[in-house]
Amino acid sequence: MGNYKMAHTMIRVLDLNRSLAFYKEALGFEEVRRRDEPTYEFTLVFLGDGDPNGHQLELTYNYGQVAPYDLGTAYGHLAVVVDDLEASWAAHDAKGYQPTEPKGLSGDGKPRYYFITDPDGYKIEIIRK
């Protein structure tokens, strides 16, 4: 059939600059490319984690959107991995991102993940690599 690979995940954001600042500061994501479409009244910004062949996060900004987006009940979360979970949690806490307490898997007891929330309410799971 084909050799499929993940390309990107798209989320809609209310304030593009606020979201760009969050993803850069909280996760170190950098802008890879941008596409402005004034005729169709939107801007797309693709963020990457430094891996040129890796999965990207697409932020879609629709001109004129004033109300926060309804995330619905089907959305779960984005997930990223990090080498040092404890240092990451401490940095997110110090920056005021209100991370959840790190949790482990059932019966394990060792903390393996926690969550933060972006400016639009999207949950982001931070997982020990």
Rank of each mutant, 00 (worst) to 15 (best):
G104R: 04
V82C: 13
P119E: 10
E25A: 14
A67S: 09
M6Y: 11
L78R: 00
D51T: 12
Y75S: 02
K129G: 14
K95M: 11
G64T: 02
I126D: 04
L57A: 07
F29Q: 10
L105F: 12
W89V: 02
V82G: 05
I124K: 02
S106A: 15
R12Y: 14
Y114W: 03
F42Y: 14
K103F: 05
K5P: 10
R33C: 12
A87K: 15
G121P: 07
T73A: 09
N62Y: 03
G28A: 11
L14G: 11
A26S: 12
Y4Q: 13
G107H: 03
E86W: 01
L47V: 05
A21R: 13
D93I: 01
D108K: 04
Q65W: 04
E25M: 09
G50H: 06
W89H: 15
V66P: 01
R112T: 00
E31L: 09
L78N: 08
T39R: 14
D36K: 12
N17H: 11
L27V: 00
L14N: 08
H8E: 13
A7G: 10
E31K: 15
I11W: 03
Y40T: 06
D118N: 06
E30I: 00
E37Y: 01
D84G: 02
A7Y: 13
N53M: 12
G104S: 10
Y23A: 09
V13C: 13
L47R: 01
G28K: 11
P38I: 00
I116H: 07
R34F: 10
Y122N: 13
Y97T: 06
G50L: 07
T39H: 09
P111A: 01
P102V: 00
G28R: 09
R35S: 15
F22M: 08
E30R: 08
M6V: 15
K5E: 14
A90F: 06
N53P: 12
Y61C: 01
G54P: 04
H77G: 06
D108F: 01
D118F: 06
L71M: 04
E58N: 07
I124H: 06
T73E: 13
L85R: 01
K95N: 09
V80A: 03
D118H: 05
D70M: 09
G2S: 15
T100Y: 03
L27I: 00
M6D: 05
I124S: 04
D84T: 06
E101M: 12
R35E: 15
K129D: 15
E30K: 10
V13R: 05
L105P: 08
L16D: 05
W89I: 00
H92M: 13
K110L: 07
H77N: 11
Y97N: 06
N17S: 14
P119F: 07
F42P: 00
I127P: 00
E31D: 08
Q56A: 10
G107T: 07
Y40C: 05
V66R: 14
I116R: 00
Y122C: 02
V45K: 02
V66C: 12
G64N: 11
A26F: 06
L14H: 05
D36R: 15
Y61G: 03
A87R: 15
G28N: 10
L44Q: 14
K129A: 08
Q98T: 15
F46V: 08
S88Y: 03
D108S: 13
A94I: 02
G107V: 06
D84V: 03
D120I: 04
G54A: 05
V32F: 03
N3F: 14
D118V: 04
M1H: 14
